[in-house]
Design a binder for these strands. Structure first.
Length: 461
DNA sequence: CTAGGGGTAATA
DNA sequence: TATTACCCCTAG
C-alpha cells in the first residue's frame, strides 16, 4: 500500500469530513493493497465507523445501518477483537427502530409491519443466529418475541408503536462509535511521529534551545507539532478551538498554535527545537513535503478558500492532527427534536483536550439538553413495580421494561424515584397530622397536577 | 453503574 | 422567592 495513500485515506476517515462522501468508495478509489493486512483492516474499520457516523449525521438510521453493524462485527472478528456491549445494544435497538418505522398504521395487519418482521427479524437475524453471531443478544431475542407477539396483541402493538426507540438506538450507536474510535490505535502519522520522537529522545542533546521559531522550515515545524500532539498532554487546547471541526476553515489554521503553555512540554520539546533537525534526513523531509503538497491539493479541491491567503509552510499542521471525532448525538428523546440529532457534530469543539499517548483528544461538546418530558403513569407504574422487584437496580428495571423506558436512562429512573420518595414522604407526613390529610393531599395533588400524574401505592425500602 | 449535588424552567 | 420535576455531571 502506498504510504501516502494510506495516510490520506486515514486522514479523511478519521477526521470529520463530508457526511455525503462514502468512505467505502474512498477506500476503493485509493486501491489499497493487501486487504487482509492489519493496516488495511484498521482502515476498513475506520471506514465503517465513519459511515455509521455519517448516517447518524444525516439522520438516516435504517437497515443500511444494520448492514454496517454486521460488517463491523466481521471486521472486528478478523481483528480478533471482542464484541462490545454497545455494539450488541446498537444492533438490537437499530433493528427495533427499523421495525418500528413500519408500525405507523394503527393495526399491525395494515402496512408493511409483517414484511419488516419477516425481513429483519426472521431473515436477517435468522442468518445471524445460524452463523452464531454475538450480535444475537438477550435484548435482541426479547425484542424479537415482543415484536412478534405485538403482531397478535393489538395492545402491545400500540404500546411499542408509541415508544421512541430511535433515541435509544442513536445513543447506543453513538456510544459504539465513541468506544471504537478510542480503540483504534494511533494513526500511521502518529505512529511514525511517535517512533521518531522516541528515537530522537534517546539521542537527545541537552540545551541549545532556540528561541526563534519563526523561520523554521515547514517540515521541522510540522514534525514538532505532530509530536507535541502525539506525545504530550496537549497543552494548547485553547488555540485549537475550531481547528478541527470547521470544514476546511480550520484545516490550515495555524495562528497561535505555536504558543505552548505547558512548561513540561516546553522542557521536553525544547531540546529538539533546534534550527535544523539533525535527525530528520533528506528522505523524511521529502516525504513530509510531498505529503503536505498532496494534502494541500486535496484540500484545495474540497474547499478552494482554504488554499488561499495562508502561509503554506505550516499547512500540514492540522493534517497530522487526525483526531477522530466520535459523533455525539444529542440525546433528544422526543420526536419534535429528532432533526437536531446531528447538530452537536457541527458545534463540536476540540477545545478541551485530554491528550493520550496517541494524541487523540476527547472533545467536550456543548450539549443540547433533552426536552423535558413528564413521566407518564405507565412509566411511574413500571418504575415502582421495578423497584419492588429489583430494588434500586435501575439498569435491571430499565432492561425489564425496554419499551416503556425507551426514552429514559437509568439515571432518569433514579431521579424519578428520588422525586417519588419525596412525594410519598410528603403525603405520609401530611397523613400523620391526621384530620386534614385528605384536604392537604388534594392541595398537594393540585399543586403538582401535571407533574406526578399517578401515585401508585407502594412501600419504601 | 449508582448516588448525590446542582442547574433550569415552570409554577404558585 | 420557594418549590417542584426533570435533566446533567461526576465521584466513587
Amino acid at each position: 500500500m502506498e504510504v501516502f495513500d494510506k495516510w490520506v485515506t486515514e486522514f479523511f476517515l478519521r477526521r470529520q469530513n463530508n457526511p455525503r462522501a462514502s468512505s467505502i468508495k474512498l477506500i476503493s478509489a485509493m486501491q489499497l493493497g493487501d486487504s487482509h493486512s492489519p493496516d488495511c483492516l484498521k482502515l476498513k474499520i475506520s471506514s465503517v465507523l465513519r459511515d455509521i457516523s455519517n448516517s447518524l449525521i444525516r439522520g438516516t438510521i435504517n437497515e443500511g445501518t444494520l448492514d454496517l453493524l454486521e460488517i463491523l462485527e466481521k471486521l472486528l472478528l478478523q481483528q480478533h477483537s471482542l464484541l462490545m456491549e454497545s455494539h450488541k445494544s446498537a444492533y438490537c435497538w437499530t433493528a427495533a427502530e427499523c421495525t418500528l418505522r413500519f408500525m405507523w398504521p394503527l393495526l399491525a395487519s395494515d402496512g408493511f409491519f409483517t414484511d419488516a418482521l419477516e425481513r429483519i427479524w426472521t431473515k436477517r437475524i435468522g442468518i445471524l443466529k445460524e452463523s452464531g453471531s454475538d450480535l444475537v443478544s438477550h435484548d435482541l431475542l426479547k425484542w424479537e418475541t415482543d415484536l412478534k407477539k405485538a403482531f397478535e396483541d393489538p395492545e402491545l402493538y400500540q404500546r411499542i408503536r408509541e415508544t421512541n426507540i430511535r433515541y435509544t438506538a442513536i445513543s447506543f450507536l453513538n456510544q459504539l462509535l465513541k468506544e471504537q474510535w478510542a480503540l483504534l490505535d494511533s494513526s500511521s502519522q502518529e505512529s511514525v511521529a511517535q517512533r521518531r520522537f522516541l528515537k530522537r529522545k534517546a539521542g537527545n542533546v541537552e540545551g541549545d534551545i532556540v528561541e526563534n521559531r519563526t523561520d523554521r522550515n515547514a517540515v521541522d515545524e510540522s514534525t514538532r507539532r505532530l509530536e507535541s500532539d502525539t506525545i504530550d498532554k496537549d497543552g494548547n487546547g485553547n488555540n485549537r478551538e475550531n481547528a478541527s471541526d470547521v470544514e476546511g476553515a480550520g484545516f490550515l489554521e495555524n495562528g497561535g498554535i505555536d504558543k505552548m503553555n505547558s512548561a513540561e512540554e516546553e522542557q521536553t520539546m525544547g531540546a529538539q527545537e533546534q534550527e535544523h533537525e539533525p535527525s530528520l534526513d533528506e528522505g523524511d523531509q521529502m516525504a513530509a513535503r510531498e505529503l503536505k503538497d498532496y494534502l494541500l491539493e486535496i484540500q484545495g479541491h474540497v474547499d478552494p478558500s482554504t488554499s488561499q491567503g495562508r502561509e503554506p509552510n505550516n499547512a500540514i499542521d492540522h493534517s497530522v492532527n487526525v483526531t477522530p471525532q466520535p459523533t455525539r448525538v444529542n440525546r433528544t428523546g422526543t420526536g419534535t427534536q429528532d432533526h437536531n440529532e446531528a447538530r452537536d457534530n457541527v458545534n463540536e469543539k476540540a477545545s478541551d483536550s485530554q491528550g493520550t499517548l496517541s494524541g487523540r483528544v476527547r472533545p467536550r461538546l456543548p450539549h443540547v439538553r433533552r426536552l423535558k418530558k413528564f413521566w407518564t403513569p405507565e412509566e411511574v407504574e413500571a418504575l415502582t413495580g421495578g423497584v419492588k422487584e429489583y430494588g434500586k437496580s435501575w439498569k435491571d428495571i430499565k432492561n425489564a421494561n425496554p419499551a416503556v423506558f425507551a426514552e429514559r436512562t437509568e439515571v432518569d429512573l433514579k431521579d424519578k424515584w428520588r422525586n417519588l420518595v419525596v412525594y410519598y414522604r410528603t403525603l405520609n407526613s401530611l397523613g400523620a397530622k391526621g384530620s386534614c390529610r385528605q384536604q392537604k393531599e388534594q392541595l398537594f395533588k393540585v399543586s403538582s397536577s401535571n407533574k406526578t400524574p399517578s401515585s401508585p401505592n407502594i412501600s419504601f425500602p
